[in-house]
C-alpha cells in the first residue's frame, strides 16, 4: 500500500477566515456563521487550526489525480521540480532535451520533473436523528461532534488543495458540498456544515452503495456515522464493495458515552429499586417499556459489545480504518491522535 504523507508546514501565514475567528470567540460575525460543537465550545480555535494545517489527509491506496494538489505522484511531468533524466525516445518532447548533457555525453537525454497531484476526499456525514442525540447537556450531540470531525478533515484537505466533497445523508443523499478545491472553499464548507440539519431516518448501506456507484474515480471516503443503520454484515458488505472499487475508506464511529453505559439511559434507581423507563427511539418513535434491572443492563452490555466487535471485525477484514470517537472526548488531543494513529491523517 502506498502511503503518501506530505506534511506541509504553512509557507506563509494564512489568516484564519474571519468567520472562523468569530465562531471561535463566540462573537456573531457578519456572515452569521458560528460553527460550534457546543454552546460554549468553539469549533476551531487558532491553535487547532494551526495543528490542522500541519496535517494532511493520507491517500492510502486511493488514486490521486490532477496537478493542483500537493500529493507527490509517480508521474513525471514538466514542472520546475527536477526529478530524473531518461534517454530520449521518439515522441518525447524534444523541448525537454537537456542539451548540456548532450554536449558532455553526446547522447540525448530528456529532463524529467516531479508532478504533484490532488486527492479526492469524500466526507459522508450521517445526518440521521439518531446522530442528533446526546445523553446529557454536558456533551455535544453526535451530529455536532461528527460535523466537527468532518469539518476538520475537510479543512485539512482543502488547505492542501485536495478535492473535497461533503455529503450529508439520511435515507437519501442530499445535495452535497463540492467537489471543491482550494482554500477559498474553507469558509463555504464550514457554512455548509453549520447549516446541516438532521434528516430523519437513515439507510446507510444503500446510501453508500449509491454514492460509490455514482463516482467514476475512487478516492478517500470518510464515513462519519453512529452506524446504527444496518447490521454489521451489511456494513461489512458495503465496505467490501468500496474496497473492491478502490476506495480508501475510513469509518469514524461516533458514539455517546451513555450508549456504552446503559444505566444512564434509564431512570436509575430509587430506594434501591430500578425505575421503569419508557424508551423512545428518536428515529422511528418506537417505544419500549422496561425496568433496567441488573440482568437487563448486563444483556444490553453484552449486545452492544458484540455489535462493536462485529463492526471492528468487518472493518479490519476489509482493511477499513476504524476510529471510534466518544462525544465526551477532547477533540484537539484524543481525536486527532486517534485519526493520526489510524492513518487517516499525517
Amino acid at each position: 500500500m502506498k502511503r503518501l504523507s506530505v506534511s506541509l508546514p504553512s509557507p506563509r501565514r494564512v489568516p484564519v477566515p474571519r468567520v472562523l475567528r468569530s465562531g471561535i470567540r463566540g462573537v456573531a460575525s457578519k456572515s452569521g456563521v458560528s460553527v460550534t460543537a457546543a454552546a460554549d465550545a468553539p469549533l476551531f480555535d487558532e491553535e487547532l487550526l494551526a495543528r490542522l494545517r500541519r496535517l494532511v489527509v493520507l491517500s492510502g491506496r486511493a488514486v490521486t489525480e490532477g496537478l493542483a494538489g500537493e500529493h507527490r505522484s509517480r508521474r513525471r511531468g514538466t514542472s520546475p521540480e527536477f526529478s530524473d533524466f531518461k534517454s530520449y525516445s521518439p515522441g518525447d518532447d524534444f523541448r525537454r532535451i537537456d542539451w548540456n548533457t548532450y554536449a558532455r555525453l553526446d547522447g540525448l537525454f530528456v529532463r524529467l520533473s516531479e508532478v504533484t497531484t490532488e486527492l479526492s476526499v469524500h466526507l459522508l456525514v450521517d445526518a440521521s436523528n439518531s446522530m442528533d442525540w446526546r445523553a446529557g447537556s454536558g456533551v455535544p450531540t453526535k451530529f455536532s461532534y461528527g460535523r466537527r470531525v468532518a469539518g476538520a478533515l475537510a479543512y485539512v484537505a482543502l488547505w492542501h488543495f485536495d478535492r473535497v466533497t461533503v455529503a450529508p445523508f439520511g435515507e437519501e443523499l442530499t445535495p452535497a458540498f463540492g467537489p471543491a478545491q482550494g482554500r477559498a472553499h474553507i469558509v463555504p464548507m464550514l457554512r455548509f456544515l453549520e447549516r446541516l440539519a438532521p434528516l430523519g431516518r437513515t439507510d446507510l448501506p444503500s446510501v453508500l452503495d449509491r454514492y460509490v456507484r455514482a463516482r467514476r474515480r475512487p478516492g478517500v471516503l470518510v464515513l462519519v456515522s453512529d452506524l446504527l443503520s444496518g447490521e454489521p454484515d451489511d456494513i461489512r458488505q458495503i465496505m467490501r464493495t468500496l474496497r473492491a472499487r478502490g476506495w480508501q475508506t475510513v469509518v469514524v464511529h461516533v458514539l455517546d458515552e451513555a450508549e456504552l453505559a446503559p444505566a444512564a439511559l434509564t431512570g436509575g434507581e430509587v430506594g434501591g429499586r430500578p425505575q421503569p423507563a419508557e424508551l423512545v427511539e428518536v428515529e422511528t418513535g418506537e417505544r419500549m417499556r422496561l425496568t433496567p434491572t441488573r440482568d437487563v443492563l448486563l444483556r444490553y452490555q453484552t449486545a452492544i459489545d458484540g455489535w462493536l466487535a462485529e463492526i471492528e471485525s468487518a472493518c479490519a477484514d476489509e482493511q477499513v480504518a476504524y476510529v471510534r470517537l466518544l462525544t465526551g472526548w477532547s477533540f484537539e488531543t484524543l481525536v486527532l491522535r486517534l485519526l493520526h494513529e489510524q492513518g487517516v491523517v499525517a
Binding site: 446522530m131 453526535k142 446504527l228 446503559p262 428518536v282 428515529e283
Partner: peptide
C-alpha cells in the same frame, strides 16, 4: 415510566 429518548432500541 420515565420517558427516555434513545438513539436506537436494537440493543
Amino acid at each position: 415510566p420515565l420517558l427516555r429518548p434513545v438513539p436506537t432500541l436494537r440493543f
